[in-house]
C-alpha cells in the first residue's frame, strides 16, 4: 500500500477517489473506442473519455480552490458538443456515399 493512501476510510472523500474514478472511466472509454465496430459506437467511447477528463478538472478545481478548472470544463463541454454534432454529420454523409456504418470498411487511408 503506498504511503499516501490512508489506512482507514476518512470521514471525507479524498481527491484521489475522484482521480481514480476518472481513470477508470477513461480506460473504459478507451476500451470502447478500440473495440466498437460501428462508428457511432466509437463516438460514444470518446464521450466517456471526455467525461472522465471533466471529472478530473472539476475535482482539481474544487480541491485547489482555483476556478480555472471549472472554466476549462465549460470550454471542454462546449467544444465537445460542437465536435459531436459535426462528427455525426460527417458519419451521416459517409453513409450516404459508402452505404456502410462499419468502421472496418472505412480504410481508405491504408498504406
Amino acid at each position: 500500500m503506498p504511503a499516501s493512501m490512508p489506512t482507514a476510510l476518512p470521514p471525507y472523500v479524498p481527491l484521489h477517489a475522484y482521480l481514480v474514478l476518472a481513470a477508470v472511466l477513461f480506460s473504459i472509454g478507451l476500451f470502447g473506442v478500440v473495440t466498437r465496430r460501428n462508428t457511432i459506437g466509437i463516438l460514444l467511447g470518446i464521450e466517456l473519455m471526455l467525461n472522465s477528463v471533466n471529472i478530473n478538472l472539476v475535482a482539481f478545481a474544487r480541491f485547489s480552490g482555483d476556478v480555472a478548472g471549472l472554466v476549462f470544463t465549460v470550454f471542454t463541454i462546449s467544444i465537445t458538443v460542437a465536435e459531436v454534432a459535426l462528427g455525426l454529420a460527417l458519419v451521416i454523409l459517409i453513409f450516404r456515399v459508402r452505404r456502410t456504418a462499419v468502421a472496418d470498411h472505412l480504410d481508405l487511408l491504408r498504406g
Binding site: P2, S4, M5, P6, P14, L15, H16, L19, V20, A23, V24, F26, S27, I28, L30, F31, V34, T35, R36, R37, F63, D104
Partner: peptide, 28 residues
C-alpha cells in the same frame, strides 16, 4: 465488437499506468 481481448489488455494497461502514477502522489 472486434478484438475484445486486445482492447481489454491495452485499456487495462493504460489504467494500471495512470493509477500507478496517481496513487504515488501525496495526498491532498
Amino acid at each position: 465488437s472486434r478484438q475484445l481481448v486486445n482492447g481489454f489488455i491495452i485499456s487495462g494497461a493504460v489504467l494500471v499506468g495512470v493509477l500507478s502514477f496517481v496513487l504515488r502522489s501525496p495526498a491532498w
